[in-house]
Design a protein around this nucleic acid. Structure first.
Lengths: 229, 229
DNA sequence: TAAGTATTTGAATCACGATTCAACAAATAT
DNA sequence: ATATTTGTTGAATCGTGATTCAAATACTTA
């Protein structure tokens, strides 16, 4: 028999298993057995903890969003410069690629939100929180004289989140010419117009320039070191 | 027995029935019987025409997109002024409300596109076509000296479509403070920055100002007539 | 009008997932 | 140690939807 767990532990595990299962099989297409398998249990055990599957799915979505949001907050927590903060935030709102689990899950929800009020509310709440996050960055930047806002900060923030969302969908759908980098570029174009700041992308050296096996005659120390602050 | 139809006619009918059924039950959650019922047939008859359900669903999505796109093209076909053309296009890309069938169907696809290459391609293609549509409007406007583009026309067009998409999702999800009008306003904010044009919304008299049962002392002929061009 | 063909039905069957539950095992309490 | 509670299994059952197909029905053609 599978290792026995306390009620609380098992519920947390199940939520995560459900999250994983939904990413693989679709938010609405998941089957109880798939969740059970993902958790290493039988369907009966899952039902024991969640007699109504829908509750589990909602909690899983909720957890997924929370995780997504927390990750973003964490990534910008150490950055002081508003411009770098903005750039980093934009990047953190996009999937890393077509298989990015977190964003995949959010995309799954878009359609369901039209038919399911709970999911609609969940998504709407996340959107509003993200808007608030951007708004704070913009306002602080303006207060410091770094940004010169071309309009209402809420309006700009809403459009920033909207752009993120949309390009997330494009990336997930495997658009041939829009990947994470291109999306960042496009959103930054808008951000520049809105903030009057050049928003140069200097953060974190990207060691991959479409393959860099360092073929040239080796210049001693230059390039890969990511501390060119 | 239900009225017999020719092969071609029936297929067209089925595609439309599938479209309607998907809007009600989700792009991936539709059942054969629901489609059959929507078409006024039995499941057997549906299978007779489409032995593989997936083919029908794909065709239905394709048709839905085509319809959506054609509607937009049609709406701007008569407009000469680039500014009005742009405004009208923006509005036509948004759902009329949370229950707008056409957009609902597109939203359904967003999640599935991550798992299903065909859907991904379908959505991507639609996106590219819309970008081209906007790009043409922008370029023509710039050539006529009406617009002063703040950047590459493709970049602006991509962001315009992205904003449309994202606000479509928000509206479908019943965001409390973002409806079609608010979304148009937000997108126009971006469009103004990008074109250097004020883009005043003068089109089509809106007879509804949050309820206008004309309670005042009745002025004889005035108000409801929608030809105040 | 008769023969032939295409479309549709309806019932039977099949497949699969959800649900239930008695039995069992692991923790915890006594 | 024993009893009790809690978590888990596995098999049985139920329900639903997909699939099949012979028969019936509506068209078409000769």
């Amino acid at each position: 028999m599978t290792q026995r767990k306390s009620r609380a532990d098992r519920r947390v595990e199940l939520i995560d298993a459900a999250r994983r299962a939904m990413i693989q099989h679709g938010a609405e297409g998941v089957h109880l057995n798939q969740i059970a398998e993902e958790a290493g249990l039988t369907s009966g055990a899952v039902l024991y903890h969640y007699p109504d599957l829908r509750d589990l799915l909602i909690e899983a979505h909720h957890a997924g969003m929370e995780r997504f949001y927390e990750q973003r907050v964490k990534k910008i927590s150490g950055i002081a410069d508003p411009a770098q903060k903005l750039i980093t935030t934009i990047r953190s709102g996009l999937p890393e690629g077509p298989d990015d689990a977190g964003v995949r899950l959010l995309c799954e929800l878009g359609g369901a939100a039209g038919r399911n009020r709970v999911y609609g509310t969940l998504l709407t709440t996340l959107y509003d929180r993200q808007v608030a996050m951007y708004q704070t960055i913009l306002e602080v930047g303006a207060a410091q004289g770094v940004f010169t806002l071309a309009g209402d900060s809420e309006q700009i923030a809403r459009n920033l989140v909207a752009l993120e969302d949309a390009y997330g969908y494009r990336i997930i759908a495997r658009h041939h010419s829009i990947g994470p980098d291109e999306a960042v570029g496009l959103i930054l174009d808008f951000a520049r117009m809105s903030t009057g700041h050049p928003l140069k992308e200097i953060p974190a050296a990207r060691p991959k320039t479409t393959r860099t096996p360092r073929p040239r005659s080796g210049g001693p120390s230059r390039g890969t070191t990511p501390n060119a602050s």
